[in-house]
């Protein structure tokens, strides 16, 4: 695998790593690391440096829902135009085209269940081409992006071994 992939994976795992730390870990010079990251940003491979937050442990009240959306593809545009239109809303955190019984999976964030229900009824469902929506509220997160929200598996190794 290339050093470029190494850097992407390291940042994906921990976006707070400094250029210097990445240079130590990969064995590249700090300038090489800076160059590679700059290129990756320009090519829009690296889009944003974000943090995985367990909101349940904060004072902010957050409800998230996954919404299955069935849509009619549009002439010449397929699903893209509607998907992008749905994505414009601030409440929408992700939009993906998926295979199976429906077309788009939309993740929506709000303060309360009611807020999300209103969003779906007043904003999402009325969009031209949207045939139906099914809302699933997320009740508890166990794991996201490879990280356990609950305690997860423990390190079962003895503390000191030869």
């Amino acid at each position: 695998m290339s050093k470029k992939m190494d850097i992407i994976e390291l940042l994906h795992e921990n976006s707070r790593l400094t250029d210097k730390q990445i240079s130590i870990i990969t064995g590249l010079s700090e300038d090489e690391v800076k160059d590679i990251i700059k290129n990756l940003e320009e090519e829009k491979v690296l889009l944003k440096y974000s943090t995985l937050v367990n909101w349940e442990k904060t004072e902010r009240e957050v409800v998230r829902a996954l919404i299955d959306v069935r849509i009619t593809p549009q002439q010449g545009q397929g699903f893209n135009a509607i998907a992008e239109r749905i994505g414009q809303y601030e409440e929408v955190k992700s939009v993906s085209l998926i295979s199976g019984g429906y077309d788009l999976s939309v993740e929506v964030e709000g303060k309360t269940m009611k807020e999300i229900a209103i969003f779906v009824a007043e904003r999402l469902a009325p969009i031209d081409g949207v045939l139906s929506t099914t809302t699933h509220f997320i009740l508890k997160r166990y794991k996201q992006d490879g990280v356990f929200f609950t305690d997860g598996p423990e390190d079962n190794r003895l503390v000191v071994t030869p």
Binding site: D155, R157, L158, V159, V160, T161, P162
Partner: peptide, 26 residues
């Protein structure tokens, strides 16, 4: 007895330890 064993006993009685003492893969 192994010198590690001696140290192991000491460690077992302590809490909230970060161990860098293990001889097996994580």
């Amino acid at each position: 007895p192994s010198g590690i064993r001696k140290f192991f006993d000491l460690v077992t009685n302590s809490r909230d330890i970060i161990s860098l003492g293990v001889g097996e893969p994580d």
